[in-house]
Amino acid sequence: MRILVKKVLRPPTIGLSPMEYQALSKQISPKPTVVKNSIRAFFVGGLICMIGQIIINLFRLGGLTFPEASAATSAVLIFLGALLTGLGVYDHIARFAGAGSIVPITGFANSIVAPALEFKREGYVLGVGARLFQIAGPVLVYGIVTSIIVGLIFFLLH
């Protein structure tokens, strides 16, 4: 049984039913500025990827293969994302850029550092250590489980 919300209120009360109210609320509440947000996400996200490409190119000039250069670039970008979070800058970038700074791997780094930093006052094991994976945890869980399923299907098909 669902927990109760009293349906019939002792009068007087407001002259709208919950359904009428939700319709009104939807009408008045602001919509996200989708076009503006998307343009910002495009430019900031594109810029981060462009910086990534320059770093990959530099690693390749240093003699790494593309997969190696790509992995090393991830590490560099994760370092930068973590550092900008520590300096208190990344949350301001994200307020402007939205998904443009959440989707790149720097956003993954931000999602690791931010909770660890915030909960440091709760100790180094249950604060920093545990919270490090508050958002990275689900990402790794779903990512790794998917990769294993992909591997298993691939194994069965061949």
Binding site: G52, G107, V139
Partner: peptide, 8 residues
């Protein structure tokens, strides 16, 4: 290149 590998 990085346009596809840098996003998550």
């Amino acid at each position: 290149g990085a346009g596809a590998t840098v996003p998550l």
